[in-house]
Amino acid sequence: MQAAWITDFFADRVIHLDETAVVKDMHQLSASYDRFRMSAKDLAHGGDRVQERQTRATVVKQVAMERDDESLLIAVGNSQDREAFNVLFHRFGSKIFALGMKITRNEQLANDLVQEAMLIIWQKAPLYDLDKGSAQTWIFTLVRNRCFDILRKLKRQPDGISADDIYAETELELSVDPEQQQAAEIQLEQIQQYFGQLPAPQQQVIEYVFMRDLTHQEAAQQLNIPLGTLKSRLRLALSKLRDFIGVEQ
């Protein structure tokens, strides 16, 4: 629209100038006409781009509406995708509110719950992954935890423990004795130290077999040494490490 108006305006000017122009001005005019045409074309093109962008935004929105909860949540976590977050809000907001009403029977508290829960979904989205099950279960447990804490507050329960402590995922690390873990760490550190004291060819075979996880055959090929040599170097290196650490063979 704007571009068309400019072209019309310019056309009027051309006629006007044309009528009064002296010949030497004609050349100049022609040049500026070209410039004008150029910018008019750019503007027209630009208009298309704006429209294009708007169409694309609508498409993105529609695509977001059709995406499943999991991919939306992952998009929020991975790339702070506001559009995806907005769709999640529209999907879950009223359900969170309904749950809040059921539990607190208080509109204000239910509204607070929606805000708190949505904020936590935004903040914790980077922690979500598909191993944690469906997005709706993840969101449900998060809302349940907020409800648990809200009720504790309403009942003026003592502080110091929260739903997140109670419903914490069982960490496998718990099954590892911290002393054992510490001992393992110390040992690893020692091994690394002793490793540096081995002759270079022995370090090499250890690296190829243990760090790069190659078979003896592959390691021998890559190091360009006979398999027998690799095996004897490896045996030698391991027995030296055992001696260093003081482990009985």
Binding site: G93, I96, E107, Q136, F140
Partner: peptide, 18 residues
């Protein structure tokens, strides 16, 4: 948890939303 989440999501929250 996953059953309760499905039930929760399937329930129509009704007119009074946030």
């Amino acid at each position: 948890e996953s059953e309760l989440a499905s039930e929760w999501v399937a329930t129509d929250p009704g007119a009074d939303g946030p």
